[in-house]
């Protein structure tokens, strides 16, 4: 795919990126230890590197960070940001969990949806939020994803989506389960209308999200080293009483078994998405 390479930088992100903090070596600066290479990395250096370690490990990032990294400056328009879960089953402890999640994530729910432009290509965009109950899907997540696909269908726009999720949200019981069918229905209608859906699987994407809209893209990409699967590895080990091989359910395992199209490092994702959107004609007329 030669068109993916050898292009002149067209904006500041490509020439080096917008950084959240100036890159400098300050002795007192906080550091993070990489779970892969076990080296300590200054936070500012991580940030300059889109929260990836020089060894290639991709740290988790928030939905807002994804939006900032991927979409053209000031192009993102959020939709349905006011939808909030209302504990439909009166599940013990759920209200408190929601409150904690809202405070710790500064978000109202586990997915952010809207319209955006990526390298000049208009699209609908969603990014799931790992710090909101590990991106679990309840009625609000299902409703927001469904509305986004319906909006994209109505306006004939492609959808770009980032998944990170522990699966369906237990505290909304059957109503969460039904969101798998609901979102799948919306993806199908969008797909049947000849519209493009690219999904990027990030760490971790599991359970009911894997078994619905995460695996329904026309093109399925993954971040390096992400855990992607249906059943959790620990549950499988307990059930089968067998040890699982190293690398099981990682992006590379899925690529090898034919379930993702390509693994794209974070630094290349914007260009790749821009190129793929362009290849599909950009905004569909």
């Amino acid at each position: 795919m030669s068109f993916l390479n050898f292009r002149k930088p067209t904006n500041e992100l490509e020439t080096g990126g917008r950084t959240a903090a100036p890159v400098h070596s300050d002795e007192s600066e906080p550091e993070l230890t990489c779970p892969n290479c076990h080296k300590s990395i200054p936070v500012s250096r991580l940030w300059a590197n889109l929260n990836t370690c020089p060894c290639g490990h991709h740290f988790r990032i928030s939905a807002r960070q994804r939006i900032r990294i991927l979409t053209d400056r000031d192009s993102f328009r959020e939709m349905d940001g006011d939808l909030r879960s209302r504990d439909p089953l009166s599940f013990a402890g759920y209200q408190e969990k929601l409150e904690t999640a809202r405070i710790s994530s500064s978000e109202t729910e586990a997915v952010i949806c809207g319209t955006a432009e990526i390298m000049g290509n208009k699209c609908c965009f969603f990014a799931m939020e790992p710090s909101f109950m590990m991106g679990s899907m309840g009625t609000v997540v299902g409703e927001k994803i469904t509305r986004l696909f319906e909006y994209a269908l109505e306006h004939r726009l492609p959808v770009i989506g980032y998944t990170v999720s522990g699966g369906a949200r237990m505290q909304e019981g059957l109503l969460s389960l039904m969101q798998m069918a609901k979102t799948s229905g919306a993806v199908k209608r969008h797909s049947d209308a000849g519209l493009l859906y690219i999904v990027i699987l990030t760490d971790p994407t599991t359970g009911g999200v894997t078994a619905s809209f995460a695996m329904e893209g026309d093109i399925i990409l993954a971040e390096p080293g992400a855990t992607i699967g249906f059943a959790g590895a620990r549950v499988i080990e307990q059930t089968t009483r067998k040890q699982l091989p190293k690398g099981f359910q990682k992006s590379e395992f899925l690529l090898e078994h034919g379930f993702v199209d390509a693994i794209v490092p974070r630094k290349d994702q914007r260009q790749t998405l821009g190129d793929l959107l362009k290849l599909h004609g950009g905004e569909t007329q």
């Binding site: 078994a211 059943a231 059930t239 078994h257």
Partner: peptide, 21 residues
């Protein structure tokens, strides 16, 4: 759905997702 190495290897999540769609 079956919980095991083979099921994951052959795309349990993808198989369910395709049925839903």
């Amino acid at each position: 759905a079956n919980c095991g190495f083979g099921a994951e290897e052959r795309g349990q999540g993808q198989a369910i997702a395709e049925n839903l769609m």
